[in-house]
Nucleic acid binder design. Sequence first.
DNA 1: CGGTATCCGTTCAGATACTG
DNA 2: CAGTATCTGAACGGATACCG
Lengths: 138, 138
Amino acid sequence: MSQRNSAVTDQAGATDPEKLAVCTVLEAINRISGKWAISILLEASRGPARFTELERAMPSISRRMLTLTLRNLERDGLLVRTVYPTVPPRVEYEATPMARELYDSLSGVVDWAERHHEAIALAREAYDGHAGCAPARK
Amino acid sequence: MSQRNSAVTDQAGATDPEKLAVCTVLEAINRISGKWAISILLEASRGPARFTELERAMPSISRRMLTLTLRNLERDGLLVRTVYPTVPPRVEYEATPMARELYDSLSGVVDWAERHHEAIALAREAYDGHAGCAPARK
DNA sequence: CGGTATCCGTTCAGATACTG
DNA sequence: CAGTATCTGAACGGATACCG
């Protein structure tokens, strides 16, 4: 996710309608970029999910990152957090309608990715190859 | 952009088709996330653009970031770099068909962002407000 | 003109320990 | 159970100087 969304607003020339669109997409994209946001959103779209459920669904996430990502998504109104004051405590996260819509509108990008991710992988290999076996560009 | 795309592959349970989709979108998104990628892609979609043109089109970008972003986009096959061995040197960047397609398929997300960015701003204010006037979540 | 190299601060993100 | 706190290294990103 990264809270560096302010990065968007100083893009210059926000008067140009096309750049305004860029600005808007960037905002949306930066909101769901980051390692975990999308996966969490997907889990929470299936119905209310508890903290530990999410943790188990994504074995390699750390507690800290799970919490941070949840908070940010909640902050943007993509997730609702419900606390049941029982003991032991029970907290549920669920995707808002807005978040589900977002997920739907990502389908265009999903299609694109599926059509081209092979070509991209090839392009990378070619680039990394001719550049002298650099495993990952520094 | 961020070259930490490997983040995607260890998402666990890549057998689940739905998670595979997540994985694929994430790859695409992380490829164009980052402060500058989209703006550059837009500029380069209008026709060949020179280094300095791009630099001027985005006043607040640093040389380093411009170069890095260009290299990464080139690496992924979204941009072609053409060097004319004249003096002074002349280098042109142009978006590939694949990149233009990507831009088109982002329209769904653009729509979503336009429909909801107000609601999101409000959600943020509300969240930040009740949480005790924290200007930006630490 | 079109970069690269270097320095350096900021933010991201993992591991671990502790708590209501 | 559902977090918070803290410490740490890695990656991101800006400024600047230099180079073919």
